[in-house]
Amino acid sequence: MDRRTFMRASALAAGTTAFSGSLWQSALAAPAQNATGPYGALQAADANGIQLPAGFTSRVIARSGQVVPGTSYTWHSAPDGGACFADGTGWIYVSNAEMSAGSGGGVSMIKFNSSGSVTGASRILSGTNRNCAGGKTPWNTWLSCEEVDSGRVWETYPLGGTAVVRPAMGVFNHEAAAADPVRKVIYLTEDKTDGCFYRFVPTTWGDLSSGTLQVLKAGTATSGSFTWATVPDPDGSPTVTRNQVSGVKRFNGGEGCHYASDTVWFTTKGDNRVWQINLANNTYELAYDDNLVNPGPAPLTGVDNITGSTFGDLYVAEDGGNMEICMITPDDKISVFLRINGQSASEIAGPAFNPAGNRLYFSSQRGTTGSSSGGITYELTGPFRV
């Protein structure tokens, strides 16, 4: 159930008079506010320094520069964006390496069997530049995005195959991607203070070798309607993609991106916001703004990577802040889900659920050392809502 459907059903169940169309939007659209989380208060830090709700446990599955336990593969530095893929009776977790091309940039993966034991690990992309976030496709590839001005999207193949660059998706400071199988497009964020929000329309769905890059156009307000316009020159030379179309909507440091049920959410780190794009009616609004939490203090700062559960909860990771992953529930309530202690010089990246939705993976990019060589990748298990 998508978030708006959830809210509508809840209101009707309570006896609220039914609204229609835009009245529902105006009645229910509001940035998330503080609330007690669905899993209750955080407990004392565990042996890994992580505070979790009761019933949840953590384990370290990989450390940068060390062999992944159960394999012969050395885990990469600066683990960043990630995703999970079904693999027979088990699954795979992929993780970007936000390193320069000459220092280990690319993508690695860890394989798990049906019981969650690690059975293998390997590289699936090498020699690329500052692979930050990305996105999973419905055909089980991982889009790894380069966070540099000349950045491109690389399509990688966790289930087998050779990675290939997708220049038709634009050359710019890429951050994250999210696939929309209904409209058959890929949404893309741009990590610049005056960045844009894009979508790529492939010529053929499932083949990203050719297509049309478009950019979102809207006013300067934090809510309203929007349209899409074609970017004339996706290679961004001599004019960068974000400056080729007039009337584009500017976003302050685009980060994570997540699609579900006719809605795409993305984050902007420059202003600590989560944006909600309502694709069924071509409107946008704020799902979270740290300046609009009342009463405060705002729990989520350093807004970065984002993912969603099958239940409809959003999980938003912090780059800095209090090193927390926060939850935004379908009824627009926000709470702290976990907190990592003793790693204030790091950031949380790559949150992703396994296919069953009962294990959450994420990384602390610089771990306890504050260096890219100190990255730690974790797994959480517990009574997740599914």
Results as ranks from 00 to 15, higher is better:
residue 332 D to A: 13
residue 52 L to Q: 03
residue 137 T to D: 06
residue 123 R to N: 15
residue 173 N to L: 09
residue 342 G to A: 08
residue 370 G to K: 11
residue 306 I to F: 10
residue 173 N to F: 09
residue 8 R to M: 14
residue 335 S to D: 02
residue 149 D to V: 05
residue 170 G to E: 07
residue 55 G to M: 03
residue 85 F to T: 01
residue 274 V to I: 14
residue 113 N to M: 07
residue 373 S to K: 09
residue 104 G to M: 07
residue 2 D to P: 01
residue 255 E to G: 11
residue 121 A to E: 01
residue 372 S to I: 08
residue 157 Y to E: 12
residue 186 I to V: 15
residue 8 R to N: 03
residue 314 L to I: 04
residue 276 Q to E: 15
residue 288 Y to E: 02
residue 26 S to Y: 03
residue 231 V to L: 14
residue 190 E to Y: 10
residue 152 R to Q: 12
residue 11 A to M: 11
residue 183 R to I: 00
residue 16 T to H: 10
residue 358 N to G: 06
residue 378 Y to A: 13
residue 51 Q to W: 00
residue 22 S to I: 11
residue 382 G to N: 14
residue 99 M to R: 15
residue 348 I to C: 10
residue 209 S to T: 15
residue 374 G to V: 06
residue 92 I to Y: 08
residue 47 A to C: 04
residue 252 N to P: 00
residue 81 G to L: 02
residue 336 V to Y: 01
residue 230 T to K: 14
residue 341 N to C: 11
residue 296 G to P: 14
residue 368 T to R: 14
residue 16 T to K: 14
residue 137 T to F: 08
residue 43 Q to C: 03
residue 220 T to D: 15
residue 371 S to A: 14
residue 345 A to S: 15
residue 27 A to Y: 06
residue 48 N to P: 05
residue 46 D to W: 06
residue 40 G to P: 01
residue 109 M to F: 07
residue 101 A to H: 07
residue 105 G to R: 05
residue 183 R to C: 02
residue 143 L to K: 03
residue 15 G to S: 11
residue 62 A to P: 10
residue 360 L to W: 05
residue 24 W to A: 06
residue 88 G to T: 00
residue 155 E to S: 12
residue 58 S to Y: 00
residue 297 P to F: 12
residue 86 A to G: 06
residue 156 T to F: 12
residue 203 T to I: 02
residue 161 G to N: 13
residue 45 A to H: 05
